[in-house]
Design a protein around this nucleic acid. Structure first.
Lengths: 220, 220
DNA sequence: TGTACATCAGTGAACGCGCGTTCACTGATGTAC
DNA sequence: TGTACATCAGTGAACGCGCGTTCACTGATGTAC
């Protein structure tokens, strides 16, 4: 049956999403143009009406991922003003993004990406670095605000932030969803907050530590 | 030229190591039996004298990785008795293992592994879980000893421990070694120690942050 | 110590398969007149 | 409003390539007598 003729911008979007879905199921290596085409409902050679080839399809998948990550940052900035809450919400959103879009961690972790073309590897690197930069910025804002310890290196904290998510994502993928993401998230965030929390600001939960700096507010 | 006839146990070892080296360079997907054979110095079909096929080769690579991780745990147990020092040394050893054996993170992160055969995926899962179990045990010992906070969930802490390493490993791979692993390790561990540290026990080495002395402030 | 034989690792040609890609052709859609 | 034409997305056959795997054969090594 002949597929309905569809504008190329629409098809490109469909193809990118189909590829991401296939990655969720079979990994980047499991993506074939035949599979993508089947998912979209066209014949393999039809892909070439919209992309130069497989490489370009994978490129737009990276774009898609970068966009999704960026949207999350934008969303928490728009929804919330308190830096501590912002970071926490971003954490929860990131987990949710991964949970509903398993193709994303698969792609980020994929060695196809960084073992393959240097250009694509660099692109992925740029996306991750950009995201880390946004996270680090949130940390800095929290420090300026006085809610986070001032002696933290924000860039390292951003990587540690990712570290709360990534191994959990892997365990979740490897265990076929049996690893309890929500439970991990709750406890891991509790631990991360210990790192972040300034002694002066009584942010979130108790951290009853006899600070040397007198002005401890006992706000809880 | 005909390769010298070599006992199968030796060849198996050589083949596994060659595969791991190839993974370091080109990822799991970049491993071909032709490549492995070339590395070892035999002809592709010779691999079949020692393994059933490619799947079995990848299986022994997983065994190799599991063994290396286990050796690290054993080593720190043998070398050190203090739980805090033990965990720190394991952290450093893990980083070193990754740095000299890039094939290991590539394999662990590889979606080839967990997108491929369920059996292999389960095997990888078992290796990781076992390692996490060992780390959690070290944490528990630290808690029993009084050096670590008692209110931490050791299993989550073990995952967070991995999280100190994994994203850093990815950044290191993606940046072609430009990401400063050592610098990250130093600062990340400093942050992790904040989580671990009990208030009663005086901390590990530096950071004499026992609650009475002032905390170390680097930036300002 | 020498001989015969079983065992076992290495070889190269050949295979089948899946996949990315090309290409000439089809037919629908939008537009100029 | 109808007609002619350019544009553009979809099709199916065919290709070349790399790869895992098979197989009959070679020749070295170890062992029984």
């Amino acid at each position: 049956m002949r597929a309905s003729k569809t504008r190329t911008e629409v098809r490109q979007e469909q193809i990118a999403q189909a590829a991401l879905d296939l990655i969720a199921r079979g990994g980047v290596a499991g993506v074939s143009l035949a599979g993508v085409a089947g998912e979209v409902g066209v014949v393999p050679s039809a892909i070439y009406r919209h992309f130069r080839g497989k490489d370009e399809v994978l490129d737009v998948v990276l774009d898609l991922i970068g966009r999704r990550l960026g949207e999350n940052v934008q969303a928490v900035r728009a929804e919330i003003t308190d830096p501590r809450e912002r970071l926490h919400r971003l954490f929860l959103r990131h987990l949710e993004l991964i949970r509903t879009n398993a193709g994303i961690p698969r792609t980020v972790l994929s060695e196809e990406i960084f073992a393959g073309q240097p250009r694509r590897k660099a692109k992925m690197h740029g996306i991750i670095r950009h995201y880390l930069g946004e996270v680090a910025l949130l940390v800095r804002e929290g420090q300026a605000d006085g809610g986070f310890r001032a002696d933290l290196d924000p860039d390292t904290a951003a990587v540690v932030f990712l570290g709360l998510i990534q191994p959990a994502a892997i365990l979740w993928l490897m265990s076929d969803g049996k690893f309890d993401l929500a439970q991990h998230a709750k406890e891991a965030w509790r631990q991360f907050r210990i790192i972040l929390q300034s002694r002066d600001a009584g942010g979130g939960e108790p951290a009853p530590d006899g600070g040397t700096k007198g002005q401890r507010r006992s706000g809880q």
